[in-house]
């Protein structure tokens, strides 16, 4: 099985001198292709920093990060933008759809930056919106869609460029429990198609949908291959 994510002794330090904050302390982490992981941990545990580094939004202070076999730790901002565009799909808690664009246009956006021609863009975007069950909502703007629909548009946008890795930051944080489960069903479906998923969540319910829970505390990974059923016990122990 190929490795999608490999963090080797990755540290992240913010600030200098007295005000130094060690957000990550030499963590090692390997995620193989096709895995479905949940990252958990209290706020300030370093899970967000880890997600930013995995998502190529941030660079480690030290250590190496291999994404799909390539060390991205030393790449320029422009090169990182290119990698985010081609290899990673992002899903955010607040959806982050552009309000002035329709659902279809929002989904085509990554393809615009990938330099895909106009007609092909529309074809591919329609196809992905169809997969998430929104082919009847192409021309609606975000404010005409429910929260669950908006998040599905965001997932379509994340998937449209056929990324290697889907990164979700609290994907159900702004949704009620019923729509949360719809989104989780969609994740399960994408996972069954072979995509690697890493999501940050603080809800044990949602973490239970994954196969592997990675637990952060004080900038370190304290549980790596935690079976999702045992999340409750860990929470109780803390």
């Amino acid at each position: 099985m190929t490795t999608v994510i490999r963090l080797e002794a990755v540290s992240k330090v913010y600030g200098q001198g007295e005000a130094e904050i060690h957000a990550l302390r030499a963590i090692n982490l390997v995620v193989a292709a096709g895995e479905y992981c949940a990252i958990m941990g209290a706020s300030g545990s370093g899970k967000s920093t880890a997600m930013n580094i995995i998502g190529c939004l941030d660079r480690p202070s030290s250590g190496a990060y291999y994404l799909d076999g390539e060390n991205v730790a030393g790449l320029s901002e422009t090169q990182l933008a290119h990698i985010r565009n081609r290899k990673i799909g992002f899903v955010f808690q607040q959806f982050h759809l552009l309000p002035q664009l329709t659902a279809l246009e929002n989904v085509t956006l990554p393809l615009v930056y990938a330099g895909v021609a106009g007609r092909e863009r529309l074809e591919r975007a329609k196809q992905v919106l169809d997969q998430v069950g929104l082919s009847h909502r192409l021309d609606n703007r975000p404010n005409q869609l429910s929260g669950g629909q908006q998040q599905r548009v965001a997932i379509a946008r994340a998937m449209v460029n056929q990324p290697l890795l889907l990164l979700a930051d609290e994907p159900t944080g702004a949704l009620d429990s019923r729509t949360s489960h719809e989104v989780m069903d969609l994740f399960a479906q994408l996972h069954s198609q072979g995509i690697t998923i890493v999501m940050v969540t603080h809800e044990p319910d949602i973490a239970r949908c994954s196969q592997r829970v990675i637990w952060f505390r004080d900038g370190q990974v304290i549980h790596d291959h935690l079976p999702p059923e045992e999340v409750g016990q860990v929470l109780f122990a803390l």
């Binding site: 939004l57 901002e77 422009t78 933008a81 985010r84 565009n85 982050h96 956006l109 930056y113």
Partner: peptide, 10 residues
């Protein structure tokens, strides 16, 4: 921020 996350370079 969103545009950058989905692949817009500076």
């Amino acid at each position: 921020g969103l545009r950058k996350a989905i692949g817009a370079d500076p």
